[in-house]
């Protein structure tokens, strides 16, 4: 009976310690790193830096990428993975916001042109 209780206490302690400390030694999140970096590159290429809101999210993504790299260096791979998720989400939002800016400009031009054609005056270039 003593022996059973002792093992039980040891087992539960071990589980508890694992629950508190987390899995600090999980694998380096290479796949997440690749997808985050790809999203950031795409955001840079779609001209996010020229659209204020998109530029903010691109900057957040870039900062979080650097944080994730530092965490990996510190062997905190699990936390790094979540930070990379944040970075990817920000980069994808930056891409979408730059698309919105372009579409808004195109829509405005098309509306102006339609109005000009209706009124019979040539649209201003």
């Amino acid at each position: 009976m003593r022996s059973i209780l002792g093992w039980a206490a040891f087992g539960l302690s071990a589980v508890g310690v694992m629950g508190i400390a987390g899995c600090a030694s999980s694998q380096v999140p290479n796949a997440r790193m690749a997808s985050s970096e790809a999203a950031i590159r795409a955001a840079q290429e779609t001209g996010s830096k020229n659209v204020p809101q998109a530029a903010l999210h691109l900057k957040l993504a870039e900062e979080q990428l650097q944080s994730a790299k530092a965490l990996i260096r510190d062997n905190d791979n699990k936390r790094a993975e979540y930070v990379l998720m944040r970075a990817q989400a920000d980069a994808e939002l930056a891409i979408a916001l730059s698309h919105v800016a372009v579409s808004n400009v195109q829509a405005g031009t098309a509306v102006d042109e339609a109005r000009a054609v209706r009124s019979g005056t040539p649209p201003t270039p």
Binding site: H57, M85, R86, A89, D90, E92, L93, A96, L97, H99, V100, S103, N104, Q106, A107, A110, V111, E113, A114, V117, R118
Partner: peptide, 30 residues
């Protein structure tokens, strides 16, 4: 944080679709 960005992404893409719809309508009008 990721969930918030996902919601904002859905809204941004909706705004993009809306703008393209306006553009398409205007081009059709023209």
């Amino acid at each position: 944080y990721v969930a918030q960005r996902r919601a904002e992404l859905a809204e941004a893409n909706a705004a993009n679709s809306q703008a393209q719809s306006v553009k398409g309508q205007a081009e059709n009008d023209t």
